[in-house]
Design a protein around this nucleic acid. Structure first.
Lengths: 254, 254
DNA sequence: GTAGTTCGGTTGTCCGGACATACGGATTGA
DNA sequence: TCAATCCGTATGTCCGGACAACCGAACTAC
């Protein structure tokens, strides 16, 4: 005799609050996500069909679909036509967002420290002007910082920002990350173009990071855009590869 | 006197074919995307409102919304409540998909070549078994390849695959990429966990890539999962940093 | 002149229904 | 025994409508 095969979402205490300003589909998707993360919905579990789920929650099918779709986009669920929707096995954690080194380190419990080396306004050189899409003689902020963990240098960050975009207080820069300051200033980050490579350290770079000349360095160049398409930041970073590497999760876009 | 401010989508020859099996929202999103890429819809342009657009095309608003939403997810459009939907300025090209080195090179017109160095079955070592989530003494495919462009070595690729997943023909491997073979075998790639770093080349690595011992190398480790959550590939790659770097576009997930 | 308010327009959310399509298993046939 | 076919079921697509929330600009009142 086969086991009952009950709909696993029945046991879940699912329910939406129609009085809340939080959208219904979002309430549902959060509850499902939490159930997956807590292991209540185990990998491979087949969710009950959308129609029945909608009926049980007193929602319409489009609303339930919107909730499920958002989790599919996050990589937590997989839909199969004619079969159903099931929880993905793998341990998807962070599908690679536009990350701040400072936030990453803080989340890892590394207690990052920043030493601001340079914080001035200069006229844009050719490559900086091209990256930020500003005139070649216009003024830009130039920022050089050393990022340390446990008192040891880990990365050297050189950034340029269009002038007039943001007040850059050295004290604030040493207390938090650049992205957080930009967001706090009302800039909504939208996308970034990144290049990751490697090269041998020059004498000056080696000195800054406490390495030997010629030692391998991990490099990252990035231009960040806000939602109007303006370039709001151009950065050239070098990392000590024994202390830092880029780690992320990718989803296949279908 | 202000200029007419016509809806820019009016000039576009938009129209859907209801006889086609291609979904209507997809037809529309492709036409819009093509218009953006061809520069017909210039950055900053405000699309006409969804209601009117739907009426003009003989579609319902949800269908039009679905088309627009897919382009928002790609980063091509930005919606603002109470304002409208506008074309994003920046040059978003590839929002970072799970890419195949072979396909990337081919797309760049580099005519990649592959030399298969090793193609055997071995028993899984501890780290390989852990990455692929198989028993430590089980059999796995071991694959070592050298990827060349213009006859020069560019990357050394070492991959492991669970046994029985796929027939690995050396001839096919030299003619195309591993991912393409996997897809052709009915494996639907879903996600991958990647780590990018750098280190100094060992004597053996330097020899393989035509570098000097101690030269900086760009490294990438990756575990790929299919849509059932099985690990289907574990790879350790090393690249010559003067010939290759990782370049991609990130979107802020909101 | 300036600050607060109103108002039109746009996207955000949600509903209930309908038909199409694909997958998997059961049934049927050779 | 094995293959082809049928059918139930689930998701995929699409419709037409409704109200809410929000933004910006014009307007009004001070």
């Amino acid at each position: 005799m086969p086991k009952p095969e009950v709909d696993p979402t029945v046991q879940l205490e699912l329910g939406v609050d129609r009085g809340s300003p939080v959208p219904l589909y979002f309430q549902l998707s959060q509850q499902l996500e939490s159930a997956i993360e807590r292991g209540v919905l185990t990998p491979g579990t087949l969710l009950g069909n959308e129609i029945e789920l909608a009926a049980r929650l007193g929602l319409s099918r489009p609303t339930v679909r919107q909730a499920i779709q958002s989790l599919v986009d996050k990589g937590l669920l997989v839909r199969r036509r004619g079969v159903g929707t099931q929880v993905v096995h793998s341990q998807v954690k962070r599908p690679l967002e536009l990350s701040s080194l400072y936030d990453d380190l803080e989340a890892a419990g590394q207690r990052p420290a920043t030493r601001v080396l340079v914080n001035t306004v200069v006229t844009a050189s050719a490559d900086v002007a091209a990256a930020l899409a500003v005139a070649e003689d216009s003024e830009v902020h130039r920022l050089e910082r050393l990022r340390l963990t446990h008192g040891e240098p880990m990365a050297y960050l050189c950034n340029y920002l269009p002038s007039g975009l943001l007040d850059l207080d050295t004290g604030q820069l040493e207390a938090t990350g650049l992205y957080r300051l930009m967001r706090a200033a009302g800039i909504t980050l939208h996308s970034a173009r990144q290049t990751i490579g490697a090269r041998a350290a020059t004498a000056a770079e080696a000195e800054r990071l406490g390495e030997r000349t010629g030692a391998p360095l991990l490099t990252m160049q990035r231009v960040t855009f806000d939602d109007t398409g303006r370039a709001v930041e151009f950065g050239t970073h070098t990392y000590r590869p024994d202390r830092y590497s880029f780690e992320f999760q990718l989803l296949v876009r279908s």
